[in-house]
């Protein structure tokens, strides 16, 4: 958080059928619908999140990710980051306050990987959902489905990992938590963090620009991941892989798809970092184990099925 970029704030996901998508993200994942706007977008949040929304769904004729946004500590930091981005040669676009309901102005830019990101400092603080701010209970009793705790991170696939690293680390203040290096020492995967978390954003090298691999949501325990797997079967939801463990981050995970083919993850556990920790390195020849720690074999779908 060296430059005032604090945490993941929201992700806007394109869906082919809004009703089916809302049902998936609310009934199955357990996100809570908090608003809709006159463009037809639907705003959702996980119950522990303090701001009004973290996931925005937009109906479109191709699925994928419109943008992911990070929340900045305050307006002065946002102004400094804006200057730093321009000095770095990044084209920025100012999205006015209120374009997303109850969200302050956003600074939008494209990373060299082809993905669109945003920074913002203000969003309506609605508090954790379903519990009081004073003497809070452990959890609200009327959550649905997987009862996801928070929107945690995204994994993006695209080219130009080195230039993207430069932007995220040197301009935005992320640090490298974990990486995969090929035989020549070129980084083919980079897991970047702002916090003690294993990742707040991750990139894997891919020739095509701007592809979306998944949006991930946090669960507390392995039992919760198994329960998520049960719910995926009960609802005949398209599964990708899991439950299993990653070598990278060592998180325990399951992957599945929303009704438009966007990949979701729910996971628990995983490594933590402090500023004195060195990045964890995996060698590309161990990529199977790095991605799927138990099978130790890659499945083609995980590497190539993207939106």
């Amino acid at each position: 958080m060296k430059k005032g970029v604090m945490r993941p704030g929201h992700v806007q996901i394109r869906v082919l059928d809004m009703d089916a998508a809302v049902k998936h993200y609310t009934d199955l994942l357990g996100l809570i619908e908090t608003d809709r706007d006159d463009q037809g977008r639907v705003y959702l949040k996980a119950w522990t999140e303090v701001d009004k929304f973290s996931v925005v769904l937009r109906e479109a004729d191709e699925p994928g990710c419109d943008f992911m946004a990070f929340k900045v500590v305050d307006e002065p930091f946002l102004q400094q980051l804006e200057k730093d981005l321009v000095e770095h040669g990044v084209d920025i676009e100012n999205i006015p306050e209120g374009e997303l309901k109850d969200c302050g102005r956003r600074v939008r830019f494209k990373a060299p990987s082809g993905h669109t990101f945003e920074l913002y400092a203000d969003k309506q603080y609605t508090g954790k959902w379903g519990i009081t701010e004073v003497n809070p209970e452990a959890w609200p009793r009327n959550l649905d489905g997987m009862k996801v705790v928070r929107f945690d991170h995204c994994l993006m696939y695209g080219p130009e990992l080195a230039a993207t690293y430069d932007l995220f680390v040197n301009v935005l203040g992320f640090y490298l938590a974990e990486q995969v290096l090929d035989g020549e020492g070129t980084r083919i995967a980079q897991f970047l963090s702002l916090s003690t978390k294993a990742h707040d954003i991750a990139f894997i090298h891919h020739e095509e620009m701007g592809k979306f691999h998944h949006a991930s949501f946090y669960l507390e325990t392995w039992e919760d991941v198994l329960r998520a797997a049960d719910l995926i079967s009960m609802t005949d939801t398209s599964i990708d892989i899991g439950p299993t463990r990653h070598g990278l981050t060592h998180g325990k995970t399951i992957y599945f798809f929303d009704p438009s083919g966007n990949r979701n993850e729910v996971f628990c556990g995983g490594d933590y970092n402090y500023p004195d920790h060195k990045p964890v390195t995996w060698q590309a020849e161990q990529l199977g184990k790095a991605i799927f720690y138990h099978d130790r074999v890659l499945n083609e779908r995980f590497l190539t099925v993207l939106t």
Partner: peptide, 10 residues
């Protein structure tokens, strides 16, 4: 078999 949701083209 890809996403099974009309999204990935697999």
């Amino acid at each position: 078999v890809g996403c099974r949701g009309g999204g990935c083209g697999f």
